[in-house]
């Protein structure tokens, strides 16, 4: 019986895909990958780089192993690794991903001197008083009055938005942009149901809440339904 191949090369219209078997040992895989790519010499005359996608299946690859495989492929003439795909995540990565995609509901008043930080979206049932700070990796939704500082997308997400029932912040930050409160806000301005986002000119804009439906349609998480 012929031994099963550990490395299968497939050509697609986006480039080469290398299917790596997930049952053999890592060393065996490396050896075979090296062998397969060395044998294939016919593209020697084409000098432009061909991008390669590695599919590791159910094998977990550490950061070092990923680097090693990239290096191995790069040494072979004109191939370059574009992406490495694996079905396996470590628990920490999974927890981090879940935390970043979670809406955290908090019911309290964030008072002066207090900092409330979450890695996902924040849904605050209460106020942010002057001197208080809320920070989120994702969006911030304040059901009460936002009178302190709000910082959304703190890990570098400039699509993040901030919305509040009563928008009177002392400062708004989204990713690395900053929007200090206007010096003269007429007292009669209600600032009810407003949102803040970064527009195409990388400026923080404040608009009525309903504007978000057009500007950030991907806020909708509902799948299916009508």
């Amino acid at each position: 019986m012929k031994k099963r191949q550990n490395v299968t090369i497939k050509g697609t219209k986006d480039g080469l895909v290398l299917l790596l078997d997930d049952l053999c040992s890592y060393d065996e895989l490396k050896r075979e990958l090296d062998l397969k790519l060395s044998a294939n010499t016919r593209t020697e005359d084409e000098r432009h780089l061909i991008s390669v996608k590695l599919e590791a299946g159910n094998r977990y690859l550490t950061e070092e192993q990923r680097e090693e495989l990239k290096e191995l492929v790069r040494q072979k003439k004109n191939l370059v690794v574009d992406t490495i795909v694996s079905n396996v995540l470590t628990k920490e990565e999974a927890d981090r991903l879940r935390a970043e995609n979670e809406v955290v509901t908090v019911s309290k008043i964030v008072r002066s001197g207090q900092v409330l930080k979450v890695s996902g979206d924040l849904l605050l049932i209460g106020d942010v008083n002057p001197g208080g700070t809320v920070v989120a990796g994702g969006n911030i939704f304040v059901m009460g009055a936002l009178k302190g500082i709000a910082h959304a997308g703190c890990f570098g997400n400039n699509q993040a938005v901030i919305a509040a029932s009563n928008m009177r912040p002392s400062q708004i930050r989204i990713h690395d942009s900053l929007h200090p409160a206007q010096d003269f806000v007429p007292a009669e301005d209600k600032h009810e149901m407003e949102c803040a986002y970064i527009d195409e000119n990388r400026q923080i804009k404040i608009d009525r809440l309903q504007a978000l439906i057009k500007i950030r349609p991907n806020l909708t998480r509902l799948e299916g339904g009508h």
Binding site: R111, S112, G113, P130, G132
Partner: peptide
């Protein structure tokens, strides 16, 4: 403002 801080504590 300071009362708010103290209440928080």
């Amino acid at each position: 403002r300071d009362a708010d801080r103290i209440i928080g504590l």
